[in-house]
Design a binder for these strands. Structure first.
Lengths: 239, 239
DNA sequence: ATTATTTTTTACGGAAGCGTAATAATGCGT
DNA sequence: ACGCATTATTACGCTTCCGTAAAAAATAAT
């Protein structure tokens, strides 16, 4: 309950911006527009220099890599705790992932120039952004290990938990086809895993929707990766 | 051949340091010690704040994540083109990977305090380090996708190529057991893949050693990930 | 309502790789 | 030279997940 309350508060603003000194925070808000994260929208393109950074207030954005043979794999998810567009201040020539909205919500959108200027001018802004980036690296590392070691069922459970944390709703809306793209698997394999989790009573599902029924049960079926990544982001946000 | 020559030149110093303005570069050398990368040495520990950063001149360092169920997975490799210890300037509370020497060589070793001070003081140092870090993120992302999508044989080929680039020798020394840890697989599976590559005539092997016989043949058997990661590092190093 | 479309579910043979463990080869110490 | 320890290889049954694709169910369009 207390945790619930904390979350509600946190959701009023992006956690990264919220952690900035008042002055910088206000500045960030003034130089951003509120942007609606619409389901399925591709907000950043692979092989392109990002024009904008996004600081989600609510919602989830997946970073997806497409391999030449066709399959796509999600390498990370960003929500309230972070931002999309790190390539802007990391000095990347281009970035290689697509960023796609998975869970509807809203975000502050800031131009690349603005972000870069803020990053270079203010030490605290820089410090926060780099701390997040480091946590993000850990997330991607964990995903790399997870993809090698854990099976569909555990990975699906993990993904649902991460998504639910970010959309802040018990239902998660998406087709299993789409989910298969995230998990780098066949629709049929995903379906099997969905049914197993449902048989275990931790989720319910219908067309285009999965709902979490037993959160802690689901946590029990997810691989360790979920808890690890959660902890890393918590630590990154604390000062 | 020209490429060969370029490589030889590059190997005289770590590429990241070499790209710095003379002044900063000299400073870095003065405040570092030459450190021998001994095969198997663990130079950074998971769950610890790094005390030193390493800028390899020759040799390869693997970043390895150990999962609680036991298996270990390599999430990235660093050699001449980069450095180990990014957590120092990224403001990480701790970092979660072990860093283990895979290919013998040498590196400049710098204290964490020194590195942090240089990072914060000089824009060009910062810029280079962040550019590398961004390339590293791409490497890890690619590994995440690769681990999901590509089979042992292709991943082994990729790993051998990356390792060879960094140790700058046709032979790569390590037990298949160790290799299995890197690839997150059984020794037996690795052995099978080794034999397939050998049957294809692109590598030779004997106890504790694999040698690359047909470099471009091996490239043909590796997944796209090898070329992608190479390109990313090239771009990161160019100004 | 009926048809078309999208999404989910089921099916089946097959490949890759696992867990386990026994056997063979190699190299080291004395 | 001989025995010991490490490393590599082979074996076998099994699980997971793939490729492919057809059937069923849910929704949307006319």
């Amino acid at each position: 309950m207390t945790q619930e309350a904390e979350r509600a508060v946190a959701r009023e603003d992006n956690a990264l911006l919220a952690a900035l000194p008042t002055r910088e925070r206000n500045d960030a808000h003034r130089s951003s527009q509120l942007f609606t994260l619409e389901f399925g929208a591709k907000i950043l393109d692979a092989n392109t220099r990002s024009q904008h950074a996004y600081f989600p207030i609510r919602g989830a954005v997946s970073l997806i890599r497409t391999l030449s043979a066709g399959p796509t794999v999600e390498v990370g998810v960003v929500g309230n705790e972070g931002m999309v567009g790190i390539d802007i201040f990391m000095g990347a020539p281009v970035q290689l992932n697509d960023a796609v909205v998975q869970g509807e919500g809203s975000a502050w959108r800031m131009s690349a120039e603005h972000l870069l200027a803020r990053f270079q001018r203010n030490g605290e802004v820089q410090r926060q952004l780099l701390r997040f980036t480091n946590a993000f690296i850990t997330q991607v590392s964990q995903t790399a290990a997870c993809n090698r070691a854990h099976d569909m069922e555990a990975r699906l459970a993990r993904w649902l938990l991460m998504m639910q944390d970010r959309v802040a709703a018990p239902q998660i809306r998406m087709t299993q086809q789409f989910l298969a793209h995230m998990l780098g698997a066949r629709t049929a394999s995903v379906n099997e895993a969905v049914q197993k989790l449902e048989a275990a009573g931790v989720i319910g599902h219908r067309r285009q929707e999965i709902s979490v029924l037993d959160r802690s049960g689901l946590e029990g079926m997810a691989c360790e990766c979920y808890a690890i990544v959660c902890r890393v982001y918590e630590q990154a946000i604390l000062n």
